[in-house]
Design a protein around this nucleic acid. Structure first.
Lengths: 126, 126
DNA sequence: TCCTTTGTTCAATGATCCTTGAACTATTGA
DNA sequence: TCAATAGTTCAAGGATCATTGAACAAAGGA
């Protein structure tokens, strides 16, 4: 990595940018799954059912550039987390209402709402 | 009008569609102004500072088709209102958080937050 | 009836979006 | 060192988007 991945500062996160980022089915699903997974970070590889490797890379970048998620490289993987604190601070109540609303929408595959991990040792923390 | 303006049923309103509709600066401004105006309906002509006549017609149609606003033709005018009840029913808390968040963003012109009408008799009710 | 007001529709244009496959980089484990 | 893993970058494609001006339609008032 020549320079670290760009993330907008908390105060630079704009509402239209968030809406644009969330206005895509794939990206909204990524957010919903991340939210269901609690505070645990997830890798891009855990979203393969949502699209191709290339498409996911594209969508994850969009979410990152909009300030919705944080992407932390670690080895060959990237760990994704919601920027909860930053979003709550800038737009109080917004993320919660989005997650609550998005949760009424069925996910494309068998995404269990944060039960015990099927493959122990795979979960990571921020 | 050959047939009345299309409005999606409340249960057909989708979150991605709302995000797509609100992911545009002009449309978000329309919503913010509508919200600031309380329950009063507004005409397209009251948004001229946000864009040309043609552009506004385009954006208002987008908001209507996404289920965010209701458009009621009356004479030569169209009266716009937020679909508060439908949105609150389908996505509780969502619209309020959007409006609260959008209200922290400055409006492009001197949009007073629902003070007394400068031109009495122009306000309308749903 | 004629003109004004209010807003729509159309065609054209340039910009942006999302997806794809192929090629590539970087890291890890054997 | 070699191969597998995880993800990025690039170019190309078609689709959708947002804006413009010109023409149009519908209703209302003089």
């Amino acid at each position: 990595m020549t320079h670290p991945l760009f993330h907008p500062d908390a105060e630079e996160i704009s509402l239209p940018a968030i809406f644009t980022a969330l206005g895509d089915e794939t990206r909204l699903n990524i957010i919903a799954i991340l939210a269901r997974n609690g505070e645990r970070a997830m890798t891009c590889g855990q979203f393969t059912e949502l699209g191709s490797k290339t498409a996911l890379s594209y969508h994850v970048a969009k979410l990152r550039e909009a300030g919705v998620i944080n992407v932390r490289p670690d080895g060959t993987k990237r760990f994704l987390t919601l920027r909860r604190a930053d979003l709550d601070n800038r737009f109080p109540g917004f993320l919660d209402s989005v997650i609550a609303s998005a949760s009424t929408i069925p996910l494309p595959e068998n995404q269990s709402p944060a039960g015990p991990a099927e493959t122990p040792g795979e979960t990571e923390w921020t």
